[in-house]
Amino acid sequence: MKPHFGRMSGIAVVMGLMLTGGAAIASDNHIVVAPGGPHPYFAVWEQAAADAQKDFGIASVKYRVPSDWKLELQTELMESLASQGVNGLGIFPGDPVGVNSTIAELKTRGIPVVTLGGCAQDPTDAVFCFATDPYKTTYTMTKALIAAIGGKGNIVHITGQIIDTNTKLREDAVQKAIDETNGAVKLLQTVADTDLDPTVADQKISALFAASKDQIDGIIATAHNSSAVTAKQLRSLGDKRIKFIGFDDDQAVLDDIKDGFAFGTYLQNAYGQAYLGAYALDLLASKTCTMKADAPWDKSPQTVHFIDSGVLKVTADNLATAKDEMKKMATGIQSKFKATYLNCK
C-alpha cells in the first residue's frame, strides 16, 4: 500500500482528539473552511471538515472552493457565506493583503475568521494564522539540502507563483541559508511560477534540466505542484546524482524517496489545519471562548498571531515511520491548543 500522509495525519488527529476529550458540546454553529482556489494540497480539508463536524458536534462544517485562484471569487464567496448565516470562516487567503478588508467587514458582523495554511498580512483582523511557516520551513529545507550535497555545490530553487508573497519569503530563506555557506554553495537559478499550472511547471523544469542538468547538485522545491513535477522529471531522467528535497506528499515524491530519486520531503499538516481550525472557530463563534491576550504566539514575517502547524522531514530512513511521527505531532498540537490559546467559560 502506498503511504498518503495527509489522510493518515487526519486519522491520527481524530484519534488524538477522541483520546483527549475533544468531542465537545454540540453547537449550532455553521463553519466553513475555504482555500483560495482549487489545489491538490487542500483536498484533505473536505474530510477534515466532515470529521470536525462529527467529532465536535458542530451543526455544519463545510468545505467550499472558489472556482479559480482569484481574490475576487474568494471575497465574493466569503460575503455570500456571511449572508447565508455562516458564523465562522477558516480560509487560505487568496491574497494575504487583499483579503484583509473582507476579514475586517466580517469581524464587524461578529464573524470570526482564522487563516489556515497561509496567513493574512498584518495589520489584519484575522484571529490567528495556523499554518506552515514558509520562511522557517524553507530555511530548514535549504540547510538540509546543503548538508545532503556535502556543503558545497550548485543548487536550484523551484517555487510557486511570483505574485504570492510567500514566494518572496521562500526566496529570502533560501538565500539566507546559502549566504551562511560563505560562497561554498551557489544558487544557480530560481524557477518560479511552477505551482498552479503543472503544464507550465513541466515546461520550465524541462528547460532547466536541458540547459544545466550537469551543473546542478541539489534541488529544493517549495510548492506542492513544483515538487511533484520535479519528482516526475528526475525519475524520467533516471538521475540519482542530484539531491532533491521536495514539499508535501504527492505520490510521485514519496515514490522517488523510496526509489532513491529524491533525498526527502517536508510534509505539512494540511488535515490538522482545517480540522483544528474548525474546532477553534466553533469555540470562538459560540462566544464561549476568547483568545488569550498573552498566548504564546509565534511570529511569522506576515503576522504576530501565528501558530506553526508544523512540518515533518521525511527521508528514506523514516518513510515507514512517518505516519506515527505525524500522529505524534498532530496530537501534540491539539492537546495543548485550548489551554494554550483560549480563555473559555
Binding site: 481574490l71 491574497d95 493583503v97 487583499g98 483579503v99 484583509n100 478588508s101 505574485i163
Partner: peptide, 10 residues
C-alpha cells in the same frame, strides 16, 4: 478602494 491596498494580482 475595495481591498485597501495596491496589489500586483489585480
Amino acid at each position: 478602494a475595495r481591498v485597501g491596498a495596491a496589489m500586483p494580482a489585480v
